[in-house]
């Protein structure tokens, strides 16, 4: 009976928030606050980035403090492709001519691929270590990319790139905030569904085992490095998609997207919502961005309050918002 009630609590939470998100543009119009649609698009995008981090952090136990690198690379991929498309110059002119593109069907998959590739390189190096080393190394590589883009004058350097317009998708007008919102919602929903299957699959079981004890997994015969690396790559690719979306949402990309504080904020979202739950980070992203929005109305110094709140969350509410909502026993599965 008890199990059942908790199961219901979790289902009710997920269904009601899905409903709320689905109806949000309508509610925003009714309330006469159309800017809510773009605020919530932003929430959905960060939710995607945070959920992708949860895959490696919550399930794999890998504390990456460089996740914004993949987010930023995804955004820059869209930005650079759009830049060349608008200027009608070549992205690559040798050995063969490759132009830019403003099509989401081209730019978004490329963004996923490029960030996944980068995640493979960074992962292959940083997964050789664990614990504190891993945290510092992921952080350092992300900062390396940050400085790389700062010094990349050809693409705006410090100032970043402004997109002429959002990407095109057949049959849709992404310039319309409501349509763009639903695209974000659909992509987040698809990711949560796929990731939910992933963590329950054989592959996911191996990842969860590695979180508990990597050595034990190896003694059972699992070559854990490959599994962890692939998980890192999947998470990086998904963060790249989130980056592609944020580039479209604000129609601007800059190195700031991959600054390490952005990585830390994505991490905060995951933990605020509850790690190892996939849905928790969505809640965490919503809570963080809404709180930022509300607090900054009252004081420009909202961080002076938010910092101690984070410390209190660590000390007293370790299971995050999702844990509080659904009961900590039933967070998983």
């Amino acid at each position: 009976m008890h199990m059942l009630s908790q199961f219901n609590r979790k289902t009710i939470c997920i269904i009601s928030s899905a409903l709320l998100l689905a109806l949000l543009p309508m509610l925003a119009t009714l309330a006469g606050e159309p800017y809510l649609v773009s605020l919530f698009s932003r929430i959905l995008i960060y939710a995607l980035a945070a959920a992708s981090l949860d895959l490696i952090l919550g399930y794999g136990g890998l504390v990456s403090l460089g996740h914004a690198a993949f987010f930023g690379i995804g955004a820059y991929t869209v930005g650079i492709l759009a830049h060349h498309d608008f200027e009608e110059t070549a992205l690559i002119s040798w050995p063969l001519f490759i132009p830019g593109s403003d099509s989401g069907l081209v730019a978004w998959p490329v963004a996923i691929l490029v960030s996944a590739l980068l995640a493979a390189i960074i992962g292959a190096l940083s997964l050789r270590t664990r614990g504190m080393h891993f945290i510092m190394i992921t952080l350092a590589f992300a900062q390396m990319l940050f400085f790389f883009f700062v010094s990349l004058e050809g693409y705006g350097g410090d100032d970043g790139l402004t997109l002429f317009s959002r990407n095109t998708l057949p049959g849709l007008d992404l310039g319309d905030d409501v349509q763009f919102y639903y695209v974000c919602l659909a992509l987040l929903g698809a990711f949560l569904f796929l990731a939910g299957r992933l963590v329950e699959s054989r592959f996911g079981m191996v990842i969860r085992g590695c979180r508990e004890s990597e050595k034990r997994m190896q003694s059972l015969g699992f070559p854990t490095f490959r599994y962890k690396l692939l998980c890192f790559v999947i998470a990086g690719g998904a963060a790249g998609l989130a980056g592609a979306l944020i580039a479209n949402q604000v129609e601007y990309v800059s190195p700031g997207l991959m600054h390490w504080t952005r990585s830390a904020i994505i991490l905060v979202m995951v933990l605020l919502g509850g790690s190892g739950t996939l849905y928790g980070p969505v809640l965490g992203a919503a809570a963080f961005l809404l709180l930022e929005e509300v607090l900054s109305i009252y004081t420009e110094h909202w961080m002076v309050y938010f910092g101690p709140v984070m410390i209190l969350v660590v000390l007293f509410a370790r299971h995050g918002l999702f844990g509080i909502l659904v009961g900590k026993e039933n967070r998983h599965g």
Binding site: V63, L65, I135, M303, V304, P308, V314
Partner: peptide
């Protein structure tokens, strides 16, 4: 002192909270 026995991820989160606090405090 309260973080020594916690997981690294908790330490990251709490000390990031400290950064936010100190940065904003100096701005004030």
């Amino acid at each position: 002192r309260r973080l020594y026995k916690k997981e690294h991820v908790d330490q990251v989160l709490a000390t990031f909270g400290l950064i936010m606090f100190f940065n904003e405090l100096t701005r004030i």
